[in-house]
Design a protein around this nucleic acid. Structure first.
Length: 510
RNA sequence: GUCCCCUUCAUCUAGUGGUUAGGAUAUUACCCUUUCACGGUAAAAACAGGGGUUCAAUUCUCCUAGGGGAUACCA
């Protein structure tokens, strides 16, 4: 047990795209596995065929890949413990249900959905808030505990629909030690006879998950807190099967909460909270509804991971920027907090800004190119790189460089009204024209020379920066603010600068 | 309703039986600067409440409140 190989699984249900909470669960699993030199498996939990959504599995695989998580074994890559899709494992589960039936830990139930609803309605009317199929109520239902052996056999032979329920023992304390929460203790009187095997021949999550984790030799189950209430049932199942000695350790992660009000972040939140909840774009195949993803919004996978890792975990130091490799080294489940964490979009952007700065101009140029191409701007790499170097400190996303500095790629077609209104004085055209004439004579058109030229012009005319600079800027860039004008002008080149000034002087009217 | 889990600045969080309760994001101010950013320096900002235990509790414990989760032939 102690030196068991670490094997963890991420086990999403393909009912739609993964949301960030799911990605974080996958990430913690991945980090834990890699930290301990273990395996990260991907298992598709598609036991509910009615909820299957086309493309969901591909989405998950693609999203994990984008985030930089490599699947060692599982759906999309294969392995020795397959298949890794529960629907394809369907024939394997029946025998396990049978085993429980034979050992008396489970029983057949023949109640129709209508009968179940009727029972619930009746008990609700009697004042029970959440009626359960349990040790008390099962005696009034149609199952192999209340029906005679002959009747049960007759129904089974006749091919009547049935399900298998766990026979929850009475008044027993189920205890298990969660890595994050410590000892968790629940009395079985509060647990119900959960369905293990459905009438369509598929297992429910509870059975499938325990059987598969056992068969796949999973050492640690790291999943969201929403599973905590059913963990005691799973523990019991391991015991009933006689697998208690190889039962995985549990770690129930705190949930990611919505930044507004309360509640956990869910797929349904889409973009309506003002930020994406999905790692990558998603189009609902049924409704056609589109949801945006972090990838397409221009976030770096590293920044996204880094942000996610810190939502519920921290290294105990003041370091906040971690590469995947560093996260693996630093990660431990012991440092995962217990309380739910509200998602902070501002901080997400901050992480991205930090990541953007780690890239040099030519790397950013490569990243920016697609955005330029989308605007039909064809520019030389070297030039883009210089623009990026100049602009990166004011960008959170690469595309901000284009957004904040369109003038690097196209001459302005309009001029910022506010700046014109406030800074374009009567004397301005005259000053700009004079400055233009001086710039024209510069033998070397670099930032330093331009700066010196500008300064000597001001001195000669006894003018302040504010009297000329804004006009100069708006003439050349069309904007009232931005990077150093000396740098901008140098990058643009003398010819272009002079040309733009000419155009501006002819078109700016006040 | 019932069961389970949780509770440090607005947010993510560090932390210890005795600390000026630390950092980051966001906010504000000042500095730098032609401007916008960046950067720098500051500021404001928290131990949910009430009992215990203790010389001493943010820290241990109980209760209350608040929040979250679960309560399906869904995962």
């Amino acid at each position: 047990m102690e030196n068991r190989r670490v094997r963890v699984r991420f086990a999403p249900s393909p009912t739609g795209p993964l949301h960030m909470g799911g990605v974080r669960t996958a990430l913690y699993n991945y980090l834990f596995a890699k930290k301990h030199g273990g395996d990260f498996l991907l298992r598709i939990e598609d036991t509910d065929q009615t909820r299957y959504v086309a493309g969901a599995e591909e989405y998950v695989v693609d999203a994990l890949k984008w985030c930089g998580m490599t699947i060692d074994e599982g759906a999309s890559v294969g392995g020795d413990n397959g298949p890794y899709r529960q629907s394809e494992r369907k024939p394997m589960y029946r025998q396990y249900a049978q085993q429980l039936l034979e050992s008396g830990h489970a029983y057949y139930a023949f109640d129709t959905p209508e009968e179940l609803t009727e029972m619930r309605e009746r008990l609700k009317a009697a004042g029970m808030a959440a009626p359960q199929y349990n040790a008390v109520t099962r005696s009034g239902m149609k199952n192999s505990l209340t029906l005679s052996a002959e009747e049960v056999k007759k129904r089974l032979d006749a091919g009547d629909k049935y399900i298998v329920r766990v026979k929850m023992p009475r008044n027993e304390e189920v205890k298990f030690e969660d890595i994050i929460r410590g000892w968790v203790c629940v009395n079985t009187n509060n647990l119900d006879d959960k369905v293990l095997f459905k009438s369509d021949g598929m297992p429910t999550y509870h059975l499938a998950n325990v059987v598969d984790d056992y068969l796949m030799n999973i050492s640690h189950v790291i999943r969201g807190e929403e599973w905590l209430p059913s963990a005691p049932l799973h523990v019991l199942l391991y015991r009933f099967f006689g697998w208690a000695d190889v039962m995985p350790e549990f770690a129930h992660l705190p949930l990611i909460l919505r930044p507004d009000g309360n509640g956990k972040l869910s797929k349904r939140d889409g973009d309506r909270l003002g930020f994406p909840v999905f790692p990558t774009n998603w189009k609902n195949p049924e409704t056609g509804e589109q949801s945006s993803g972090y990838r397409e919004r221009g976030y770096y996978p590293g920044a996204f991971n880094n942000m996610l890792a810190f939502l519920g975990w921290n290294p105990g130091t003041t370091q906040e920027l971690f590469s995947m490799e560093e996260l693996i080294q630093a990660f431990s489940l012991e440092r995962v907090g217990k309380a739910g964490a509200k998602f902070d979009f501002d901080k997400t952007n901050w992480f991205n800004q930090q990541y953007l700065r780690m890239h040099n101009g030519s790397e950013l140029a490569t990243q920016l190119k697609p955005y330029l191409a989308a605007e039909n701007l064809v520019v030389e790499n070297e030039y883009i790189a210089q623009v990026c170097d100049l602009m990166k400190e004011r960008a959170t996303f690469v595309q901000d460089i284009l957004k904040e500095g369109p003038y690097f790629f196209e001459a302005p077609t309009s001029y910022d009204e506010k700046t014109i209104k406030k800074k374009w004085k009567e004397q301005t055209p005259e000053h700009i024209r004079e400055l233009s004439g001086l710039l024209k004579e510069l033998p070397l058109f670099d930032a330093e020379s331009i700066g010196a030229c500008f300064k000597s012009f001001l001195e000669a005319k006894e003018l302040g920066f504010g009297a000329v600079m804004p006009g100069f800027r708006v003439s050349v860039t069309g904007l009232g603010a931005g990077a150093s004008m000396n740098d901008i002008a140098a990058l643009l080149g003398k010819k272009e600068v002079l040309r733009r000034i000419e155009v501006a002087l002819n078109s700016i009217k006040k």
